[in-house]
């Protein structure tokens, strides 16, 4: 049985067509990740699956139940973690968990037992009785993930949970998600971060209200192996250099990185000599120019932000 099946889903807000015939299947126990730029329709899709937004057309089934005909059954199967920090800072971690457990219908004794178990599982037992206002960002998000794992939940939906996290906190949260997934919970992760999406078994890319591609991350990297990025590492970044890189790349995506620029291009062999010559001309011998295979994040940029070959094919 599939965990989530979305068939020909259309969502309009007035005359605006937000979701254009979305089709999606997420298998039971799968770790699924959805990437897409702002305004691509990800949040609308998530709010539909969590039962908080009505649909215009189509069908959404969760574990065989029709989302809108059996809303109560479906809602008890889904644990949702929105992007915002929704836990109360004036309550302790334990009190927050107890609140959500009882709100989900558990009696006080069962809820207390569940709270002890989930605190241990999420590594929060020691800080359980501290006010959430004293928690770090990573701890607070782990607590919020825990609120979504009340008994009966089979699907965990997370909306950009690692935004603003340092690498250690991200690693810890992703580790917890993998652990949860190993226990059989289906995970639907919405993210902008390629590394986060990389832990999933299947990644889908969304653009303009459509799923434009979905595959295993390893397959994606093989499919996009010809796609490379040119990483230009510089001691000093400069607008002139940025503009020049942009002109070499014929106006296509060039982004600023911590130590230079990343050029997304179809034919790196054409612009690589141009970049090297230019850097020599301006006297930047310490500059380092590297050709790198596309990461998931790069594929995300290729697919969603550039007029790439793949996009044009999709439009056709």
């Amino acid at each position: 049985m599939n965990a989530i099946v979305v068939k020909n889903l259309v969502k309009n807000y007035g005359t605006q067509n937000i979701l254009k015939t979305v089709n999606l299947t997420i298998e039971k126990g799968e770790f699924f990740s959805l990437m897409g730029p702002n305004g691509s329709g990800k949040s609308t899709l998530v709010s539909i699956i969590t039962g908080t937004t009505p649909i215009t057309k189509g069908v959404v089934n969760v574990y065989g139940h029709n989302l809108f005909e059996e809303s109560k059954n479906v809602k008890s199967l889904i644990g949702y973690v929105p992007q915002e920090n929704f836990s109360s800072p004036r309550l302790t971690g334990r009190e927050n968990l107890l609140y959500f457990a009882q709100l989900s219908g558990q009696d006080k004794i069962t809820a207390k037992k569940w709270v002890d178990d989930i605190l241990e599982k999420m590594g929060l037992t020691e800080d359980a009785d501290k006010l959430v206002s004293k928690y770090s960002g990573g701890m607070r998000k782990r607590l919020e993930v825990a609120t979504a794992l009340v008994p009966g939940v089979k699907i965990l939906i997370l909306d950009e949970p690692t935004t603003g996290f340092d690498p250690a906190a991200r690693k810890m949260l992703l580790g917890s998600l993998l652990e949860i997934n190993r226990e059989g919970i289906t995970i639907f992760l919405v993210t902008h971060i390629g590394e986060d999406a990389g832990v999933a078994k299947k990644v889908a890319f969304m653009k303009n209200g459509k799923i434009i591609l979905q595959d295993d991350p390893k397959n994606l990297k093989i499919r996009f192996k010809e796609r490379t990025t040119v990483d230009v590492k510089l001691a000093i970044k400069d607008t002139h250099i940025y503009n020049k890189l942009l002109s070499f790349n014929k106006g296509r995506k060039v982004i600023e990185t911590v130590d230079g620029y990343k050029v997304y291009c179809d034919r790196p062999e054409e612009i690589l000599p141009q970049i090297n010559n230019y850097l020599n001309d301006i006297g930047s011998p310490s500059a380092k120019v590297e050709l790198n295979p596309a990461s998931l994040e790069d594929i995300f940029f290729f697919l969603t932000q550039q007029e790439s070959r793949y996009d044009l094919e999709e439009e056709k």
């Binding site: 949702y80 929704f86 109360s88 609120t147």
Partner: peptide, 13 residues
């Protein structure tokens, strides 16, 4: 503002 309603409206509540 804190997003609590986004969360609790997804519950069978």
């Amino acid at each position: 503002e804190r997003g609590l309603y986004r969360k609790i409206s997804s519950l069978p509540l």
